[in-house]
Amino acid sequence: MKLIECKDLCMKYEGITAFENLTFAIDEGDFLCIVGENGSGKSTLVKGILGLKQYSAGSIEFGGVKPKEIGYLPQQTAAQKDFPATVWEVVLSGCLNRNSFFPFYTKENKERAKHEIAKMKIEDLVHKSYRNLSGGQQQRVLLARALCATEKLLLLDEPVSGLDPVVTSEMYEVIDELNKNGVTIIMVTHDIHNAVHYGTKILNMSRNGYYFGDAKEYVKTDAFRAMAGGCFHHDK
């Protein structure tokens, strides 16, 4: 079943095109990796899918998932670096979209948060302050929060940038495990080798055109060789 289908999608910033004529679809159970050079419009596309930014042409259709049922892991913001909040407070906040008008957390919310915390193996961090955690631990906390909001579709914008190689492969394992348990994944990444290893589909964006298809096909393309041959940049 198609969860999201984008047709001839264009997005602009004040008249300047970020990308145009993008067509692709995500099926239930997919692990889609979005790769491409800096400034090719990956984060912009993510914002379009989430409805955080209007697109200028084309369409995005949702099937089997509501636009508000997408768990999101943003690129980290500067404000979060010194934000005083415990892991428990952060994870629990993912449940808020379940209580439409009720202002406080229900018992059910708390059970759910505990469940997701256990799934991410961060039980021992629950009372720690988010700002004092390592990068990898923070990502697990944000994953747990996203899972509180939805179990259908996760959208991750560069979850492994800035993590060391060991923690990076741990993160991929965690995300892959979620995918095997039925969570559809869309992930923006710079890490092309892991992208083709774990991803089932690849969307390669660049300023002159794009590639969308199975990961197995993608590795045979010139676009892949160009990405894999070049040096890697991590943007913030």
Partner: peptide, 22 residues
């Protein structure tokens, strides 16, 4: 007090909150 949890969520991470329907 009524909106405490939502204010927390929006303060901590506005994009996540918007994306999940707050």
């Amino acid at each position: 007090i009524i909106f405490y949890h939502r204010i927390f969520a929006v303060t901590f991470d506005e994009s996540f909150s918007s994306a999940t329907g707050i």
